[in-house]
Nucleic acid binder design. Structure first.
Lengths: 339, 339
DNA sequence: AATGTGCTGGCAACCGTTTGCCAACTTTTG
DNA sequence: CAAAAGTTGGCAAACGGTTGCCAGCACATT
């Protein structure tokens, strides 16, 4: 059995092996590999060569244990079922990988307790967390933000950095669109009450409707899931309204299915506008008029913010930052002139 | 400023603090918390009480460093864009959380090299990995499996545990369905060549078509993305075939869009059958006839297999295990009798 | 020539937990 | 009643890095 030098040791390569090979102290190896300027250029080259030769891979756990930095960011979503989060995850994934961080994906199952418990349990093994659609109270969030670097998405709390997708501003466009098509009676199909954007969207719709002198009513709340679309559709039909704006596309697509079953024509009998422009909004039947949100960008931006928070360490200056991303109305087939 | 005892120490609680409080050695605390039977019941109770009181959270890194177990499983997907993987991720997420493991999500961007590099780099910080749609060669996979516990999904390699979604078997049903509708000329719309299931599906289609005495041709390959559907649709139209089976639903949905643009009627002019039954297959227009795959279940099963591999440590007995999950044909609107 | 300064590298103490080994004590057994 | 076996708990050495502190050296300054 001839064994290559590299195969001889089943035990993984450590900085000590590199130190032994190059004749320097382990500490020097550590510095050469992680603090570029701290060692002589020549020795550093030698060490890097040796590391390459030995096929050295640093041990993340050990590094984390002594330095406190884990190189891991958690991304919490409230329900992986929802395609909206896929976009977020895609965005965070891209940025995190580019920055050399690992992404820990956590589903909080729409439960604030689970969210808090998870975060608390993992806070020592994370460098930071991104909360997409947190169900936590403002106080709980602010408290958590002192324990661990945090960025929230679609949730505005003092003292916590955040990325806000400005769907409420887009609602104005949607209302104008519907009003110009002749609609005078708008229904807001409400999502979960515990959702922060839900409330914001309703308020935006109400004030916008008032500005245009049209009626605004509210149906729901409904869970933000496709099956709930049936109940939502029935509720809306019952109001005799001619147009509705729906909390999100998932629910709106569910409604479309139900309305088709019932023989209600869209947009002939009723116009439907969704929010988010998720996967599927452009190929459902009819295709969905919706407020297109820069979902993936939101994920990317949240990571950038979090990382700069980690490196800059400017507790006060940065603490208030809040990035607002604009949305726009994408008109498709589900909205049309009043019959 | 009154401070509660727990708030007094900014430094996180360690087993030493618990040891000091209960008057035992740190090692005893460690054992009480992780090896239930190893300490006296009474002392264990005391220790657990103290741990609760101090709000102790074990340090994952330290535990991993000395024990070698990290409590983390990586899930590698080739493109998070693809809704198919959402199902997988959902399944793995559920099982992993239930078992107390953390899920590291990695997007390999369809690159075998990136996949191998990532896995190699992280192998020491992982307890195992689940490879959904690996782009690695059989040899590379087998080699990797000796470095780190592995379960593949939709990839059958000797020496590597796997979960196979048996779409090829379902293809038989799909062919029968189409043949019974009068189709005599079937096109297989091919996905990426590097994809293992792609080849398997084509072979299944071919042999099944032969059995029924109908023609089977092949178009492509095309990337498994929605935009590629345009090219695929055009290619299929050009063949004058009356029915096609498409590598996956994503591509099929892309084709639907294009065919509609071109005014080609589905299923009037051409019948389309997809594979997987992803999110959207039931509300696209027309709704998609497809081979429904137990995607989420595949994710769950793969985790179960991996975890049992970790605990049982039966290198030979288990090494060959391969779970096959059945699929079935779901007939919707996109397939119909020949004109 | 003496002092100051900047650059390198080594020493050794951590980081928080696990675990092999041993000692003391209790119980069972012959 | 002595020896064997089983419990229970402590000691101390890992695990693999990071980092504060110090020393040696070269060079520039006065």
């Amino acid at each position: 059995m001839e064994e290559l030098p590299s195969a001889k040791r089943a035990r993984p390569v450590t900085i000590n092996d590199i130190a032994a090979l190059t004749g320097v102290a382990p500490s020097t190896v550590s510095r050469a590999l992680s603090k570029p300027g701290r060692v002589n250029h020549a020795t550093r080259e030698r060490i890097e060569a040796a590391a390459r030769e030995l096929n050295y891979v640093p041990n993340t756990q050990a590094r984390a244990l002594s330095s406190g930095r884990t190189g891991t960011i958690a991304v919490l979503v409230s329900a992986i079922t929802n395609p909206f989060y896929f976009g977020i995850i895609r965005g965070t994934q891209q940025q995190l990988k580019a920055a050399g961080y690992a992404q820990l994906l956590i589903d909080t199952e729409d439960s604030g307790e689970l969210e808090a418990a998870m975060l608390h349990k993992m806070r020592r093994s994370l460098d930071g967390a991104i909360l997409a659609a947190s169900r936590l109270s403002d106080r709980a969030l602010a408290a958590l933000a002192t324990e661990i670097p945090l960025v929230t998405i679609n949730r505005n709390v003092r003292g916590v950095q955040s990325v806000i997708i400005d769907t409420p501003a887009g609602i104005g466009q949607a209302v104008e669109h519907l009003v110009s098509l002749g609609h005078r009676d708008l229904i807001y199909v409400s999502g979960p009450q515990s959702s922060w954007p839900n409330e914001a969207r309703w308020q935006a719709l109400r004030s916008s409707a008032a500005r245009h002198g049209v009626q605004a009513r509210r149906a729901g709340p409904f869970p933000a899931e496709r099956p709930s679309g049936s109940a939502a559709a029935d509720a809306v039909v019952n109001t005799k309204a001619t147009a509705c704006i729906v909390f999100n596309d998932l629910l709106a697509i569910g409604m479309l299915t139900r309305l088709r079953e019932r023989g209600v024509r869209v947009p002939g009998d009723i116009s439907i506008v969704g929010c988010d422009d998720i996967f599927g909004a452009d190929f459902c039947h009819p295709t969905l008029t919706t407020l297109t949100a820069p979902i993936e960008q939101a994920g990317r931006v949240s990571v950038s913010m979090l990382l700069s928070l980690l490196t800059d360490r400017l507790p006060d200056q940065n603490q208030r930052r809040c990035v607002v991303l604009p949305t726009h109305l994408t008109v498709r087939e589900s909205s049309g002139p009043i019959a």
